[in-house]
Simulated scan of single mutants.
Amino acid sequence: MYTHAFRRRLKKNLPDARVAAAERAPELGAAWLAAEAREHTAFHQNPSQIDPIPKALVNTLTEQRNPRSESLEKMNPQTLVQLFIEEEKFVQDALRTAAADLARAIEIVTESLRSGGRLFYIGAGSSGRIGVLDASEIPPTFGAPTHLVQGVIAGGITALHRSVEGAEDEQSTGALAVVERGVKPADVVIGITASGRTPFVRGALARAKSLGARVILLTCNPSVAGIGDAGQPGSSIPATGFDLIITVAVGPEILAGSTRLKAGTATKVALNIISTGAMIGLGKVRGNLMIDLHTTSTKLRDRAVRIIAELTQRDYESARRLLEANDWNLRVALETH
């Protein structure tokens, strides 16, 4: 009751705020806020109060050392660049292996959006930023309303430009984020976590599942796809509880544990495939041309003119006049030409 009342009051001044009951001693929160008030003040928990790193996380593929990059500091720039390029082949291989699951994800998302549902990306750190990035590109590219595809990142807006990595450690915070977005049975929630075990994401997916939404896990850790994860302590939702698990196993990173590298690349491509495939399914593409793009800049207006010229077989100036006559609405111009 207290949490609900506090959230209602706080929302008036801080609409993006996340409110949840504290799961740790309140003194830690007070010390953290004090440290935040001083830019150069560091706050360190007593080692005895820091949660131990789960053995399952330590053993995930994305945390392993890459034998091909064990001497990075000894490489010259040319060798380092070549290594990065060579490692990208593992991204393509992983995506090819996941092709059938990516196709199924397109079907699930398209079906949901056609039925009035929405698509949510849930992630923390690099995974969350990639989800927000893909979601933010949908309205201008496909003329979709901003609520149709939404990105949710642990730590909120601040985490987009400054690391708030500790925000990912609470399952309850992820669950609260889902509730605050009003997730319903018609929606699809895609949890993005390279390790497959991020508490914020798992908590969000568990709550979304309980609300009747379709849930998809996008991970770079093959072990999550097995039954062995189910029922273990700290597991908010068993592997068998997901509607779909997409595994893009890119292998260990060049810099051990830095999943903004290959894992990040594979994640972005996977989301590109899913969201673009769904928009194609909704009829927002003709051939390979965007017919619902928002003409909000000089570049996009020029693109719209060229699309009209191409699809209606007319010259550039005639296509421009047609768009101007239809208030730069590309779809309407195509339907009335």
Rank of each mutant, 00 (worst) to 15 (best):
A30I: 10
L28I: 15
A256W: 01
E63F: 08
R96S: 07
T265M: 07
G241R: 03
L211M: 14
I192M: 10
V332Q: 10
N329M: 11
P140M: 05
A35E: 01
I308H: 00
N326F: 05
R8W: 09
S71D: 04
M75K: 15
F200I: 10
V109Q: 00
Y2N: 15
A34S: 15
A159Y: 00
R162Q: 14
N329C: 04
A206R: 12
E111Q: 10
A309T: 05
A304M: 03
A270P: 03
A194M: 06
I122Y: 06
T240C: 12
S69R: 05
P67F: 13
A213K: 02
A21G: 12
R314A: 12
A278N: 01
E86L: 15
D327I: 14
A230D: 11
H44F: 08
P52E: 08
D187T: 05
I85P: 01
D327F: 05
G241F: 06
L113F: 02
F84E: 07
I254P: 08
I157H: 14
I273Q: 11
T60L: 07
P140A: 02
I130Q: 01
S210W: 01
M75W: 14
A204F: 03
I216S: 08
K262L: 06
T312R: 11
E335S: 14
G128P: 00
R9A: 09
I237H: 00
L217K: 02
L33Q: 09
I192V: 09
